[in-house]
Design a protein around this nucleic acid. Structure first.
Length: 883
RNA sequence: GCCCCUGUGGCGGAAUCGGUAGACGCGACGGAUUCAAAAUCCGUUUUCUUCGGAAGUGCCCGUUCAAGUCGGGCCAGGGGCACCA
C-alpha cells in the first residue's frame, strides 16, 4: 500500500510530457493561433524554413531546422509582428518513381502517404505553423500555376529550346543531373553514363548573370560564404577575345577566335589549341580519320575530378598554323587538345607555356618553346631561361619586370597591365575586351514522369507551340506503368495525343517534365496566397522578401541561385515586384552522431551499443552479445551507417520540448551538432527542473493573494532577482535577434539557476517580497522559454494561473536602468596580468579609482615603495598598473 | 592548383568594442537525502604549485599599458570550386 502511494506521489511530481504536449497543441489549434491573416495589423515578418522532400519520415536535421525557425516565428509573434510561417512539400522527384518501380506503388500514392506521416510528425513538434496554407508541389493546383508561369516566361523570351550535351543513363533511359553521376556511372543503374546531345528546354539564367552577381553585395544578411560560392559559380572574368589568322585557309576557315584573361602573356604564345568539338576541329575531322578518332578517344576518358587530375595533356597536330599577331613573320602550330573546353570562352586558346601550368605541361610534351613575357622583379640573370622548370604565374597584383613585349604595349602592374593590353589590342584592331561568365543556362528538361509537365505541343505543321493558358493544367495521367525503364509519358497510349493550339491539327505533347528545382524556385511566393487563381497576387509583394530563411548549406548555389533568378523572371512576367526573395538567410549545420562498428565491419545502431569510461578510455560493447564494438568517427546521420536517431522515439521518450531544446543548446546553430544520449537526458532534466520550480512556487504562494497591491520595501534578495531577470531578458532578446540560440539557452540556464536558489521555501517564508518578485520573474522566464519549449511554457503558465496562454502574450520587456549595478568590481592588472580586484561605486571617477588602486596590498607590494610608471584606468572596465 | 572557414579544459562551447579566459551545458569526482536505489539538492572540476603563487586560447614573430580578439609568417583539420584559358 505505502509503496503504491509513494510511487503515485513520485509520478505526480514529474512532468508528464506526453499528455501535456498534446493538450496544448490542441489548445493552440482550437484558437487558430498560428493561422495568419494577410491583412492583419502589425508589421509583417515572413519566416521560412526550406520545405522538406517527403521521403518517408522526418529526421533530426528537420527537427533542428524547424526548431530554429519556430523560435524565430514565436519570438516575432510575441513582439507583435504579423508573422507568416508556412509549411509545404517539395514533392516531385525521382525517389517516388524509384519506389514505384521497386514496390509497384504509384508515385502519387507513395508521396501523399509520406506527406501524411511527416505532417503528423512535424505537428508533434508543436510548431507555430499556419497549416491552412500547406500545399505540395505535386498538387495539380500548384503545378498548374507553374505551367502558367512557364508560358509567361516563354512569352517574355526567358525560355529557350536548344541542343545541349547531357548525362544519359542508357539503362534507365533518362537524363541524369550531374549530382546523380558517380564516377561516370548512373547512381541507380550503375550503367556507364553517356554524353548525349539532346534538345532541351532552358531557362535563360545567363541573361541575369551580371545582376545576380552585382546584387549579392546587397544581401548583407546572407552568410559571406554563400555569397562567395554564388559569385564563384557565376564566375565573371574580363579578358580579351581576339582573332588569329590561319596562314592558309582550311575547310572554309580563314582563322578563329580565342579568349584569354591574360592578354599580357600574348608575346609568350608558342602554340594554339582548340577543343575537339570546335567547328574547325569537326570540319578537319571530316577528312582526317586519325583526328576523328582522337576526338572520340579524348572524350571517352572519364570526366570525374580524379580522372581529370591524372589525365595527361594530349594534343593532335592539325598541320595548320596561324600568324603570330604581335611577332610579324612568326607562325604558331594549331593543335586539337583534350584540355580545351568548348563550353568556355570560344573553345580555343593560345598556349603560353611560360605562364600557365597546363600550357607548360603541353609544351614540354610536344616540345614547344617557352617564352616569358615577364619575370619577378628580384630575378637576376638570364630572363629567358628562368621558367624552364615550372611556369611563373604571379598574382595579378604583383609587380613584375616585363620582357619580350611588343612595342606599344603598356607594361604597368598587374590588372592594369591586362587592361592596358586589352586597350592596346582594341586600338590595333586585334581583338576586343570581353566579359565571360562561367554560369550556364539552366536545363530544366527531365525525361521523367513524376514532375511538372512542360506545357508545349509539337505539331508537324507549326513546330513547337506553347499550350493555350485556357487549356491548363496539363495534368499528369494516373494510369502509367513503371515496368519498362524510361519515361512512362512517352509510352502512354493516349496522353501524348492532342490538338495543336495554333492550327487545330493532330499534335503530340512534350513528354519531358520540369526539373524539381523549378518547383522549389517560387513556392515561397505561393505561400502568400496559396489558393489564388493566378501564380501570385498582391499578397506576394506585401509579404516578400522572406525576412528569415533557414536551411542547409547544401543549397548554397542551386536552389538559392535559381530562386533569385525566378524572382527576377517573375518580375519580368509581371508576377512579382521583389527582386531578391530572401532578405535574411541562415544556413544551419548538420546533426551528426558517432558511428559504431563491430569486428566484422558491420555498422551497429546506437541503441544496441553500451559505452563505458570517458575520454580516450571510452570503450563500447554490444548491449546484448557483449561483443566489443569500435567507436568510429562522428558523421552525418545516415541510414547506411546506421547512426540515426528517430525523432519519433525521442519525442515519445522525452517530449518535443526536450528534442527542440537539445537541438538548440550547446552548438552554435551554423555548426554541426553532435547528438548524444547524455545531452538529450540533460535537456530533459532541465524540462523537469523548470516544471518543478514553477509547481513548487505555485504551491508555496497559493495562499498569498493578500500580498496583491501591497507595497513592500524590496530586500536585497528581491533586487538581485529583479536585476538578474532583466539582465536575462536583455541577453536572450539580443541573442535571438542574432540567431545565437545556444547563447540564449545558456542565459536561460543562468536565470533558472538564480531562481532556483532565490525561491527556496524558507527564504520566501521570511521575505514576502520574494513571492511577488518571484512570480514576476517566473512569468518573464516563461516568456523567454516559450519560443524554445512552447508546451512546457504553457503548462507552467497555467500552473501560475496567468491569464490566457503564453503564445498569446507579449515578449517580456526589460528596464535598462535595472541593468546598472550600484557597485562594481574592477579587475586590477599589474603589467597586464590580473593581480587583484577593486570594488568601487559604479559611477566612481578616474581619480577615485586611481587612489583606491594604490592602496591595494598587491599593488603596494609590486610598487615596493616606488611610483607606477603608468596607471591606466578604463572606468567600468579595468585598471592596469605599469611598474 | 585557386578560394573560404575553423583551431580555447576530458567533451560541446562562452568571452558582442582590444580590457577578469573557460559563462552555460555534458561528463567525472566528493558529500547530503534514502534500508537501498532512482530522482533531487550542495560542493569540486584548465594545468602546475613549495599553497605565496606561476603558466595557459595550434606554433613563431610583431603592434599595444593590455591580444583568444589586431598584423605578418607557419602548422593542422574541414569545406567549396576546378583542365574556366
Amino acid at each position: 500500500m505505502s509503496d503504491t502511494a509513494t510511487e503515485t506521489h513520485q509520478n505526480a511530481a514529474r512532468y508528464d510530457h506526453q499528455a501535456t504536449e498534446q493538450k496544448w497543441r490542441a489548445a493552440w489549434d482550437e484558437h487558430k493561433l498560428f493561422e495568419t491573416d494577410n491583412d492583419a495589423p502589425g508589421e509583417k515578418y515572413y519566416v521560412l524554413e526550406m520545405f522538406p522532400y517527403p521521403s518517408g519520415r522526418i529526421h533530426m536535421g528537420h527537427v533542428r531546422n524547424y526548431a530554429m525557425g519556430d523560435v524565430v516565428a514565436r519570438y516575432r509573434r510575441a513582439q507583435g509582428y504579423n508573422v507568416l510561417h508556412p509549411m509545404g512539400w517539395d514533392a516531385f522527384g525521382m525517389p517516388a518513381e524509384n519506389a514505384a518501380m521497386k514496390n509497384k506503388v504509384h508515385p502519387a500514392e507513395w508521396t501523399y502517404q509520406n506527406i501524411d506521416t511527416m505532417r503528423s510528425q512535424l505537428k508533434s513538434m508543436g510548431l507555430a505553423i499556419d497549416w491552412s496554407r500547406e500545399f505540395a508541389t505535386c498538387d495539380v493546383e500548384y503545378y498548374a500555376q507553374q505551367q502558367a508561369l512557364f508560358l509567361d516566361f516563354l512569352d517574355k523570351d526567358l525560355v529557350t529550346r536548344k541542343s545541349a550535351k547531357v548525362n544519359w543513363d542508357p539503362v534507365d533511359m533518362t537524363v541524369l543531373a550531374n549530382e546523380q553521376v558517380i564516377d561516370g556511372k548512373g547512381w541507380r543503374s550503375g550503367a556507364e553514363v553517356e554524353q548525349r546531345e539532346l534538345t532541351q528546354w532552358f531557362f535563360k539564367i545567363t541573361d541575369y548573370a551580371e545582376d545576380l552577381l552585382q546584387s549579392l553585395d546587397g544581401l548583407d544578411r546572407w552568410p559571406e560564404k554563400v555569397r562567395t560560392m554564388q559569385a564563384n559559380w557565376i564566375g565573371k572574368s574580363r579578358g580579351l577575345q581576339m582573332r588569329f589568322e590561319l596562314t592558309e585557309p582550311a575547310k572554309g576557315f580563314d582563322g578563329f577566335d580565342i579568349y584569354t584573361t591574360r592578354p599580357d602573356t600574348l608575346a609568350g604564345a608558342s602554340f594554339m589549341a582548340i577543343a575537339p568539338e570546335h567547328p574547325l576541329a569537326k570540319a578537319l575531322a571530316e577528312d582526317d580519320a586519325a583526328l576523328a578518332e582522337f576526338a572520340v578517344e579524348v572524350r571517352k576518358s572519364g570526366t570525374s575530378a580524379e580522372e581529370m587530375e591524372k589525365a595527361e595533356k594530349l594534343g593532335y597536330d592539325t598541320g595548320l598554323s596561324v600568324k603570330h599577331p604581335v611577332k610579324p613573320g612568326e607562325t604558331l602550330p594549331v593543335y586539337v587538345a583534350n584540355f580545351i573546353l568548348m563550353d568556355y570562352g570560344t573553345g580555343a586558346i593560345f598556349g603560353c607555356p611560360a605562364h600557365d601550368q597546363r600550357d607548360h605541361d603541353f609544351a614540354r610534351k610536344y616540345d614547344r618553346p617557352i617564352i616569358a613575357t615577364f619575370v619577378p622583379t628580384d630575378h637576376e640573370g638570364d630572363a629567358d631561361t628562368f621558367v624552364v622548370d615550372e611556369p611563373y604565374v604571379p598574382p595579378k597584383t604583383e609587380t613584375v619586370n616585363w620582357i619580350n613585349q611588343p612595342a606599344g604595349v603598356a607594361t604597368a602592374t598587374g590588372q592594369e597591365a591586362i587592361d592596358a593590353t586589352i586597350d592596346w589590342a582594341e586600338q590595333n584592331k586585334l581583338g576586343e575586351g570581353q566579359v565571360q561568365y562561367r554560369l550556364r543556362d539552366w536545363g530544366i528538361s527531365r525525361q521523367r514522369y513524376w514532375g511538372c509537365p512542360i506545357p508545349v505541343v509539337h505539331c508537324d505543321t507549326c513546330g513547337v507551340v506553347p499550350e493555350k493558358k485556357e487549356n491548363l493544367p496539363i495534368v499528369l495521367p494516373d494510369d502509367v506503368d513503371f515496368e519498362t525503364p524510361g519515361n512512362p509519358l512517352d509510352r502512354h497510349p493516349t496522353w501524348r495525343d492532342c490538338n495543336c493550339p495554333k492550327c487545330g491539327g493532330a499534335a503530340k505533347r512534350e513528354t519531358d517534365t520540369m526539373d524539381t528545382f523549378v518547383d522549389s524556385s517560387w513556392y515561397f511566393a505561393r505561400f502568400t496566397d496559396p489558393k489564388a487563381a493566378e501564380p501570385t497576387t498582391k499578397a506576394a509583394n506585401d509579404w516578400l522578401a522572406v525576412d528569415q530563411y533557414i536551411g542547409g548549406i547544401e543549397h548554397a548555389i542551386l536552389h538559392l541561385l535559381y530562386s533569385r533568378f525566378f524572382a527576377r523572371a517573375m518580375g519580368e512576367a509581371g508576377h512579382l515586384d521583389v527582386k531578391e526573395p530572401f532578405a535574411g538567410l541562415f544556413t544551419q549545420g548538420m546533426v551528426v552522431h558517432e558511428t559504431y562498428c563491430d569486428g566484422d565491419g558491420n555498422w551497429i545502431e546506437p541503441a544496441q551499443v553500451k559505452i563505458a569510461g570517458e575520454g580516450n578510455s571510452r570503450a563500447a560493447h554490444h548491449a546484448q552479445s557483449g561483443a566489443p564494438i569500435e567507436i568510429g568517427s562522428i558523421e552525418k546521420m545516415s541510414k547506411s551507417k546506421k547512426n540515426v536517431v528517430d525523432p519519433d522515439d525521442i519525442i515519445e521518450r522525452f517530449g518535443a520540448d526536450t528534442a527542440r531544446w537539445f537541438m538548440l543548446s550547446d552548438s552554435p546553430p551554423e555548426r554541426d551538432v553532435i547528438w548524444t544520449e547524455a545531452g538529450a537526458e540533460g535537456a530533459h532534466r532541465f524540462v523537469q527542473r523548470v516544471w518543478r520550480i514553477v509547481s513548487e512556487f505555485a504551491a508555496n504562494s497559493a495562499d498569498d493573494a493578500s500580498l496583491e497591491g501591497q507595497t513592500i520595501e524590496p530586500s536585497k534578495a528581491v533586487l538581485d532577482l529583479r536585476r538578474a531577470t532583466h539582465k536575462a531578458i536583455a541577453g536572450v532578446t539580443d541573442d535571438i535577434e542574432k540567431l545565437g540560440f545556444n547563447r540564449a539557452v545558456a542565459k536561460i540556464y543562468e536565470l533558472v539557476n538564480t531562481l532556483s536558489s532565490a525561491l527556496k521555501a524558507d527564504a520566501m517564508a521570511k521575505d514576502a517580497g520574494l513571492k511577488v518578485e518571484g512570480r514576476a520573474s517566473l512569468v518573464s522566464l516563461l516568456g523567454l522559454i516559450a519560443p524554445f519549449m512552447p508546451h512546457l511554457a504553457e503548462e507552467c503558465w497555467a500552473l501560475l494561473n496567468e491569464p490566457q496562454m503564453v503564445a498569446q502574450t507579449r515578449w517580456p520587456v526589460y528596464d535598462p536602468d535595472l541593468l546598472k549595478e550600484d557597485e562594481i568590481t574592477l579587475p586590477v592588472q599589474i603589467n597586464g596580468k590580473k593581480r587583484a580586484d577593486l570594488t568601487v561605486a559604479a559611477d566612481a571617477d578616474k581619480a577615485t579609482i586611481e587612489a583606491a588602486t594604490l592602496t591595494l596590498d598587491a599593488v603596494q607590494r609590486a610598487l615596493d615603495g616606488g611610483q607606477p610608471k603608468k596607471l591606466i584606468v578604463v572606468p567600468g572596465r579595468i585598471v592596469n598598473v605599469v611598474v
